[in-house]
């Protein structure tokens, strides 16, 4: 698998002014190479406008957007877009082309030789979990919503873009499929090292996928932070409300039992027998749910691989972890 190197994306005082309103107002932040940045906010907050300024589907009124230090406004928009993956909610697969032809779109534009386009398309279909033997020759109308979205991601990744823009890509699929697609996006993104800018209005999706989350409101950046920090220290009342009153629970969803401060002074045999045995990779949120369900104060934690006993997780420790950062 070719490991494409992600690029740094920097917004520098970017403003988009329409006749009657300011859509994006003095936006400045930097997405480090190879990270996923989620732009999140209510409708009309300017997140999609910001995203589309990166590949110049919308032109900024002022400011600069730099990809690896080069201002996108200095480049030919058509050439620029061929180096930036683009996925939208409605996918926009070409209905008259097969899935394989769709995936090969950008390589074709870049003039790759036919056999290289073909092998790359096959490779990508396999990467996004669409069996090339079954899907390569199909047309978009023959695919389910989730399958189309996978094909859309494969198409966006075809030419190893250092940056990928995703505009509510999983907004139109059902929750179960969305959950799976999110997991696969994380896997693929880690694998390819692509820098991803991802727009959503779903804070849970943002917390799950984001290395960094940019919360926007009325065209302005309200807070830009990793999910854990955002949940622990919301910058103001708006952010606190937006992330929800259950932000403590959401934070626990980002932490694992293995990473918690375990009490190893207690013997495995000494733990309440009703307590559920937790794997180190279990999130604290799930651990808490299990412990409350069984009505226990503590639960043993074991290593995922060898089942080795690591120590005991207690409700008091969980509570303390939340309190320590709040």
């Amino acid at each position: 698998m070719p490991n494409a190197r992600g690029a740094t994306v920097e917004f520098r005082d970017v403003t988009k002014q329409y006749a009657d309103q300011v859509a994006v107002d003095g936006l400045s932040f930097t997405v480090p190479a190879g990270k996923i940045c989620i732009l999140v906010g209510p409708s009309g907050s300017g997140k999609t406008t910001s995203l589309k300024m990166v590949n110049r589907l919308i032109e900024p009124t002022s400011g600069a957007i730099l990809i690896d230090g080069t201002d996108v406004l200095q480049e030919d928009p058509v050439q620029l877009r061929r180096r930036i993956g683009y996925v939208i909610q409605q996918v926009g697969l070409f209905p008259h082309q097969t899935i394989e032809e769709n995936v090969g779109t950008v390589p074709r534009l870049l003039g790759w030789p036919k056999d290289r386009i073909r092998s790359r398309s096959i490779e990508l279909l396999a990467l996004v979990g669409l069996d090339p033997k079954r899907y390569a020759a199909r047309y978009p109308a023959q695919l389910s919503g989730g399958e189309r979205q996978r094909a859309g991601v494969a198409r966006a990744l075809a030419a190893d873009p250092p940056v990928m823009l995703m505009d509510e890509p999983f907004g139109a699929v059902d929750p179960i499929v969305r959950d799976r697609l999110q997991a696969e996006l994380l896997r693929i993104q880690r694998d390819q090292g692509t820098t991803v800018l991802f727009v959503t209005h779903d804070i849970d999706e943002a917390i799950r996928l984001g290395d960094r989350i940019a919360i926007m409101k009325d065209g302005k950046l309200v807070q830009y932070a990793p999910p854990g920090e955002l949940l622990a220290h919301p910058a103001n009342e708006f952010v606190a409300q937006f992330v929800g009153s259950d932000r403590g629970l959401k934070r626990l969803g980002l932490l694992t039992a293995g990473g918690a401060d375990l009490d190893s002074g207690i013997e495995r045999a000494g733990v309440d027998p009703r307590a559920p045995e937790l794997k180190a990779s279990t999130t604290l949120r799930d651990a808490l749910a299990l412990m409350l369900e069984r009505g226990v104060q503590q639960a043993p934690v074991v290593d995922d691989n060898d089942g080795r006993y690591l120590g005991v997780l207690t409700l008091a420790k969980i509570s303390k972890m939340l309190g320590s950062q709040a």
Partner: peptide, 26 residues
């Protein structure tokens, strides 16, 4: 479909390219 055209433009098809390879066949 406007979404198909936006996807085409977003991937770096030129305007004549969009007309020739996407809009006209559709």
């Amino acid at each position: 479909d406007r979404d198909v055209i936006e996807a085409a433009r977003g991937m770096g098809l030129s305007e004549p390219g969009i007309l020739r390879t996407v809009e006209a066949p559709l």
